[in-house]
């Protein structure tokens, strides 16, 4: 029984870590621009697919991974420049449609650049399961957990200690005030898309060896990432991480103990229940509506 619980927990943590990386991407862009980027899942796809095709072309991981991340970041920057920037000031729902349009466009593009097949990626360090307390975990899952932790630490350093990070944070609190103290708000917006695309790509490369990758792998992951970001509270880094892990663990626990057919539905019921009592998510900013 406890070995079973352990297995569910380890699986939930791995799945949750990926959701957390996606949720962080949502939050970073939301903070800078108040845009929910529904194309976030496509960065996961681009990262994974680019890594697959680069390694297939014979590049070593040390080269292929940074290049794949850079490719996704470039797409992120282009998205900001050509789709979000020109629509500044549009309503929430208009921006949602723009980013969904972008995600359809990117998927169509990926279908042409690559193909419609599933692709495997070689695990970073072997495929031999590691036993922990009667449960097993793949070495790649440890990579997922480790890299996610490292990214969370790096981000909190970045936003807490560096000038650029603080500028981005300031912009999220009050765009006008940030502009007044000389922060280049447009630059912050631009960079936030690059950063969040890079995060998505890292997630995509990390899970490709476990789950395979294809041109449409981003759709469901994007939705789950959004759900995690909302559950944690939009714009909160802490919230994104907790939201992701809670969602991942809730899913695997429901699959294990309740019903695997309804595990996603159960996850959404949990989110709805949380929102009924905490309308801004677990760690979201409270506060009134601007009149």
């Amino acid at each position: 029984m406890s070995a079973q619980f352990m297995q569910y927990l380890l699986t939930g943590l791995t799945v949750g870590a990926i959701y957390a990386l996606l949720a962080l991407g949502f939050s970073i862009i939301f903070n800078a621009s108040h845009v929910i980027n529904f194309a976030q899942g496509e960065f996961v796809m681009i990262g994974g697919m680019a890594a697959v095709s680069l390694t297939a072309a014979g590049l070593p991981y040390l080269l292929a991974v940074p290049l794949a991340i850079a490719a996704a970041a470039l797409v992120g920057l282009a998205l900001e420049k050509f789709a979000v920037e020109p629509a500044r000031g549009a309503s929430v729902v208009t921006l949602i449609i723009i980013t969904i349009g972008a995600s359809i466009f990117l998927r169509g593009l990926a279908m042409l650049v690559w193909d419609k097949n599933l692709h495997p990626l070689k695990p970073f360090t072997g495929d031999t399961p590691i036993a922990i307390g009667g449960a097993t975990i793949l070495p790649q899952s440890l990579w997922v957990l480790g890299v996610t932790l490292a990214i969370v630490l790096a981000l909190s350093w970045f936003f807490g200690r560096t000038l650029l990070g603080k500028a981005m944070l300031a912009t999220s609190h009050n765009r006008l005030a940030a502009e007044l103290v000389g922060i280049n708000v447009r630059m912050v917006l631009f960079l936030s898309f690059g950063l969040s695309a890079a995060l998505g790509a890292i997630a995509g490369i990390l899970i490709a060896p476990i789950t395979l990758t294809s041109y449409d792998v981003g759709v469901m992951l994007g939705l789950k990432g959004f759900a995690a970001a909302i559950l944690g509270g939009l714009g909160s880094g802490m919230g994104a991480v907790v939201g992701g892990l809670v969602l991942g663990i809730a899913e695997t626990m429901s699959a294990g103990y309740l019903s695997s057919a309804y595990k996603d539905a159960i996850a959404f019921v949990i989110i709805l229940a949380v929102l009924f009592f905490m309308p801004s998510g677990l760690f979201g900013k409270r506060g009134g509506e601007r009149v």
Binding site: I98, G101, A102, I104, F105, G108
Partner: peptide, 15 residues
């Protein structure tokens, strides 16, 4: 190119 064009139309009109 159908999917790409559809996405582009969605983005374009909204922008």
């Amino acid at each position: 190119y159908e999917m790409m064009v559809f996405g582009a139309v969605m983005m374009g009109t909204m922008i």
